[in-house]
Design a protein around this nucleic acid. Structure first.
Lengths: 197, 197
DNA sequence: CTTTACAGTTAGCAATTATTAACTTAAAAT
DNA sequence: ATTTTAAGTTAATAATTGCTAACTGTAAAG
């Protein structure tokens, strides 16, 4: 509760591990690198986790669940369909800032890692996310708010994907501070396009 | 020229290496994995490249240069500003399909790899891409075709971002076939938004 | 006061990695 | 016909990896 101290080592492992995956990639996710980052030896890691994989499982579950809730929170606000969708984006962006872009990166890394356990967790997250968002989009289409010619399921994925792309831009330009400087601009572009009316 | 045979081993190394990075991630990019894929031993790799890093450099340069040219090709067609921008997206999508999504994934991997040489190549690519596209967008704003309240540089990155988002969905859902099933739908979403008019 | 459990250490193992060296072989160049 | 070269092999290297075992100190529980 003071400036920074007194996170348990277990907690530090998870945070350091996630940071390594996000900032340096899976290849640098090693017991030694994690241990160095928190000031212990690599063997100490195994006092808190049975394996490196189990750390990954914990990281995925923890970050993914933050993201899962974002759609539910937006829906719970009982807004118009258009505002609900905008709110989904806002919630998303706020999770993104909070987790420093971890979720899309974790998804992307582990969807290709060949580890079935990781993939299954991620896949079921993406599936449920997509179906929730698709339903909102379909409702919007019935109400005439959303263009009838957009594919709800594809567009749902576009919501997550766009955010991942923002992380890429952020990293590539070595920016600091918030990943998405102007959330409303991004939302507006996605919703109304870039063409003047 | 026949069905498939007679690529040089050097060429096979580059193709297999890129495929591994794209489909399985940097962690699996090892001499042994590449060698297995093309039916030689790991030591044979070093007859063609001095190091694994040099393979990566070649992969990045090769795929990135294909992508760099896409804006130039679109500009060379001398279309209206709006059509030029749409054509940029089309060119982009066609490079994407041709390279099986490699560029965005390579960018994703190497933007975080911590290797300065890799990062620099990518950075200068993104920089030049962004400035070319920004200029077109600014021209569009002066002509009143593009919304004045969008940031040209951010929007340039949105062009890449949308495509990355599609690759993200493609990978996450382990799809096969074209990455972007309906290019004109995506282009239309970017230009006119998802909201009905 | 002693015991126990926890959280760390050092040391080490077996596997894997990037890379090199020494050898083979077949084809091209002389 | 011989030499050279290219492109492969096997075998070895040093470093790094995930993980375990055996040890140490400290603080709470009895």
């Amino acid at each position: 509760m003071s400036v920074e101290e007194e996170l348990s080592t277990r907690e530090k492992i998870i945070l350091a591990g996630a940071q390594i995956i996000v900032e340096e990639g899976l290849r640098k996710f090693t017991a030694k690198n994690i241990a160095n980052k928190i000031g212990v030896t690599d063997a100490a890691i195994y006092k808190h986790f049975p394996s490196l994989d189990s750390i990954i499982i914990e990281i995925i579950n923890r970050y993914i669940s933050k993201c899962s809730q974002s759609v539910d929170r937006a829906v719970a606000m009982n807004l118009s369909t258009e505002e609900t969708l905008k709110q989904v984006m806002r919630e998303h962006i706020s999770v993104l800032e909070e987790t420093k872009g971890a979720v899309p990166i974790l998804c992307f890394e582990f969807s290709r890692s060949g580890n079935k356990k990781f993939f299954d967790i991620l896949h079921s997250f993406v599936d449920s996310y997509k179906s929730k968002l698709s339903k909102i989009l379909e409702k919007g289409q019935q109400e005439g708010v959303i263009r009838k010619d957009v594919n709800p399921s594809e567009t749902a994925m576009l919501f997550v994907g766009l955010i991942q792309a923002k992380v890429f831009a952020y990293v590539m330009e070595r920016r600091t501070g918030p990943i998405i400087a102007n959330p409303e601009e991004l939302i507006s572009e996605l919703f109304y396009g870039i063409i003047a009316r």
